[in-house]
Design a protein around this nucleic acid. Structure first.
Length: 804
RNA sequence: GCCCGGGUGGUGAAAUGGUAUACACGAAGGACUUAAAAUCCUUUGCUCGAAAGGGCGUGUGGGUUCGAGUCCCACCCCGGGCACCA
């Protein structure tokens, strides 16, 4: 009889919902709390097969933990502010809130079809004023501590979306969302001082149980670099400045200085000189070029001489100062000293005929000649330093420390650290986001909205289209904008920018512990019960953004004594991406998108989720194969069939296999190796079908299956086997090592490392006995015949290798 | 350019330095059926051989080892991240 999975799934989903079966209490009797966190979805419209991968597969783990005496919280929510909702709403002529809420209710229904053990009582939605009240509140705590500030800065501007973008939202010089070419524009922006935490964000990452790739990506993203800031003077002008160098070993080879075109100092260098006009023209040209394709690396740098010199910095002569296109204005100090030991400097000097010097040579004589003649740029850790005299003969690596000390002793410069990481621009000139809770007063400056007036609710606007002048659409809400200053009661205006949605998602996991609290962002006692999050599962695309921001927020809250932990996620595991059947990324234009609803309709939710778990390693993802799911579907049908065909005894062999897979399935789930766990279940069923199996043994097997196929196992458990209480609260079966232990094993016999025969032997035989058994085999006898055994290598309970 | 991953049957994939290809899909043959579907059984890395049995096989080329998919060196290809960071 073919299974009516639809009926079964509807039935149990309804019952679980009515019984509030997955409601999490803050306390479990003698149970440890465990929050299994997955990245809350963006309500884009309907569920994608990727959502199933992200939520239904970890649900296996959540259910497993529950059966293993853990008080499990498997929370869910919606990250619901953001550009796409706004764009979609504009396109359809409806309000973003309407569009978003419609999507949320539809996706909620779909999420329930997964049969995942979500606790909907703890649902968190970032567009809920009771949620964003606390997003604003946290912002104000940062503002008070000068961690949120306003500044004029060059920002990435998307001309199509008409908004400012974070560096992270720019991909290859284009807007991540719409693909338009990003340009540079100067604006007053709200920033978060994440750079203040750069060191802690790098140093604390070591102790986390996170994928090495994620750790490395964050380290590179923060990009800590240690070196020297040289102090220098401009000749004939009363100007001092600093120059950063992360590899100061070869500093005595430096012969010229380059400055970024956007650097404010450029103007001071040239004003009133004959260079004024040509340099200005050059700077304008480069600025325009950079705005057009900032992220395209130029093949050849351009530059112009400023007519000025650095005043004899190391007592070896003056350095001409050039404006050069390859210098980055906002890294280091925006000014660089140049030598022959850097590819870019070397090429630049050659192009403009600037004299060079050498401070380091290779040991190879022919190479050294080339370097001396400036035929080749040389930078190598094995290079031999020539100067200063104090380090002559040392190699580049070992010279680093003494050279740095030499530079400091001579007073040329000081040790410093610079970072690639920039402060986080959170201002968005867009409607669909959290209003920044600040009031501008002519007299008092930027005044925080008093906490009792939070949340600053997003006003309802008919016209929420971007203005296109860098002003938020909120500026159009005149009644909302005009307020009294909380300090002086004079006329003032509200801030009209909204926050980057990454702010919303930087603390959502905390709210899960206490989602309905009206007085605090979360109760401290409740936080202590659940946090830090023991395991966070999500996509690798969040390596440098969301995960870094959440760590930053956590550290800020920790410093403010608002959180008892300074790292949010103890363990982190990434999942892979599900590709289309053609092995390509799914996209509408390619027509390779898998609709989970259609698959569920055909095979049922249990099959879909179990196939996703079975198709390969969870961190790898891979292409969806339409034919692959039939294997799972058949397997589940066979499980159902055998439940109707139980015997009154279990063969010893089956009993043994059961204990083996209890061990295997448990261990595999714990290391997220769902694919091999399922293969274990299949091996058991294949054997059980050919032997006899009783109710007790089958029930244990069914418990192992329960996290994978929650509906079918519950149906069999209650309806076919007449059990009263749900299978999902049964204790996970225990295995006995005694049962697993085999009496015999297959002894592999190798001759000179090649497998020649396999015989059955008793476990625990020693080398001598094994050798005797081996030479008894007729095959082996024939091969050995007449030759001498030089030696044998014996691996207990496994193999013997005879060397002739 | 730099930094990470990864290359195993027709396909998705398994393998603490110790039997390469578990489990599943697909394919071929068979049973059941008037027939098909479903289901069940058998075979399924390549190759020589009638068979017994042998040879070759984890991207390529070397190396370490009694023994290498696994460790080391060089290279090729694919995927991802960062990218004028001095």
């Amino acid at each position: 009889m073919p299974l009516n999975f639809k009926k079964i799934e509807n039935k149990w989903q309804k019952i679980w919902k009515e019984e509030q079966f997955f409601k999490t209490r803050d306390e479990g009797k003698n149970k440890k709390n465990f929050m299994l966190l997955t990245e809350f979805p963006y309500p884009s419209g309907n569920l994608h097969i990727g959502h199933w991968y992200a939520f239904a597969v970890p649900d296996i783990f959540a259910r497993y933990l529950r059966m293993n005496n853990k008080n499990v919280m498997y929370p869910i929510g919606f990250d619901a502010f953001g550009l796409p909702a706004e764009n979609a709403a504009i396109k359809r002529g409806i309000n973003p809130r309407k569009w978003t809420e419609k999507n949320i209710s539809f996706m909620t229904k779909q999420l329930n079809n997964m049969g995942a053990a979500f606790d909907w009582n703890r649902k968190v939605s970032t567009i809920d004023p009771e949620y964003y009240k606390w997003t604003q509140w946290i912002f104000l705590q940062m503002f008070k501590k000068n961690l949120a500030y306003r500044t004029k800065t060059f920002v990435n501007w998307c001309p199509k979306d008409k908004t400012v973008l974070a560096n992270e939202q720019v991909v290859n010089g284009r807007c991540e969302r719409c693909g338009a070419l990003v340009v540079q524009k100067e604006f007053e922006q709200w920033m978060l001082r994440i750079t203040k935490y750069a060191d802690r964000l790098i140093d604390d990452i070591e102790k986390l149980d996170w994928p090495e790739t994620t750790k490395l990506a964050q380290k590179n993203w923060i990009g800590r670099s240690q070196g020297i800031n040289f102090k220098e003077k401009v000749k004939d002008l009363n100007i001092e400045f600093e120059v950063y160098d992360s590899i100061p070993q070869t500093f005595l080879a430096q012969t010229f200085t380059v400055i970024a075109p956007e650097h404010p100092l450029v103007e001071k260098l040239i004003i009133g000189t004959e260079y004024e006009k040509p340099v200005r023209e050059f700077v304008e040209k480069i600025k325009q070029k950079k705005a057009a394709d900032k992220f395209e690396i130029e093949k050849e740098s351009e530059g112009i001489f400023t007519g000025r010199y650095v005043d004899n910095p190391f007592g070896t002569g003056d350095f001409p100062i050039w404006v050069a296109s390859y210098v980055v204005a906002d890294y280091g100090t925006g000014i660089v000293n140049c030598s022959a030991h850097d590819e870019r400097d070397f090429a630049f000097a050659k192009k403009y005929d600037i004299p060079l010097k050498i401070a380091m040579l290779p040991s190879d004589k022919i190479m050294a000649e080339k370097v001396k003649n400036f035929e080749e740029c040389y930078l190598d850790p094995n290079g031999i330093l020539q100067k200063p005299a104090e380090v002559r003969g040392m190699n580049w690596t070992e010279a680093r420390k003494p050279v740095i000390e030499y530079i400091e002793n001579k007073g040329f410069g000081k040790r410093t650290t610079h970072y690639r990481l920039r402060d986080w621009v959170i201002s968005r000139q867009r409607y669909w986001g959290v209003p920044i809770p600040v009031i501008h007063c002519e007299k008092c400056g930027y005044v925080p909205v008093p906490e009792k007036n939070l949340p600053v609710e997003l006003p309802k606007l008919k016209d929420f289209l971007p203005t296109g002048e860098g002003k938020s659409p909120l500026a159009k809400a005149k009644k909302w904008v005009d307020v009294d200053c909380p300090k002086c009661k004079g006329k003032a205006r509200r801030e009209t920018d909204t926050m980057d949605t990454f702010v919303d998602s930087s603390w959502y996991f905390i709210r899960y512990t206490d989602p309905k609290n009206k007085n605090k962002f979360a109760d401290r006692k409740k936080m202590k019960k659940w946090l830090p999050v023991p395991l966070y599962i999500g996509g690798a695309e969040h390596n440098t953004m969301h995960l870094l921001y959440s760590r930053f927020f956590t550290k800020v809250l920790y410093d403010l004594k608002l959180a008892h932990f300074n790292e949010p996620f103890v363990s982190r595991r990434n999942h892979g991406t599900i590709l289309g059947p053609d092995g390509q990324k799914m996209s509408k234009s390619k027509g390779n998108v898998i609709d989970p609803d259609a698959e569920v309709k055909k095979y049922g939710a249990d099959s879909v989720r179990m196939y996703l778990a079975f198709m390969g390693p969870y961190d790898q993802g891979g292409p969806w194969q339409f034919t692959g799911i039939t294997g799972i579907s058949r397997f589940l049908q066979r499980v159902f069939n055998i439940s109707k065909n139980l015997s009154d005894k279990t063969d010893r062999e089956i009993e043994k296999t059961l204990h083996q897979i209890i061990k295997k399935v448990g261990e595999d789930i714990e290391s997220l190796r769902f694919n091999t766990a399922i293969s274990g279940l299949m091996i058991f069923l294949n054997k059980a079908e050919k032997n006899s199996i009783n109710k007790k043994t089958f029930e244990d097997f069914l418990k192992l299956l329960a996290p994978f196929a929650p509906h079918l196992s519950e149906e069999i458990w209650k309806t076919n086997l007449n059990n009263k209480k749900s299978i999902h609260i049964q204790p996970w079966p225990k295995y006995s090592n005694k049962m697993i232990a085999e009496e015999n094993f297959e002894l592999v016999i190798q001759i000179n490392g090649k497998v020649r025969d396999k015989i059955l032997a008793k476990k625990g035989v020693n080398q001598e006995q094994a050798e005797k058994l081996a030479v008894k085999s007729s095959k082996i006898k024939n091969i050995i015949a007449g030759r001498n055994i030089k030696k044998t290598i014996f691996v207990p309970d496994r193999l013997i290798n005879i060397i002739l």
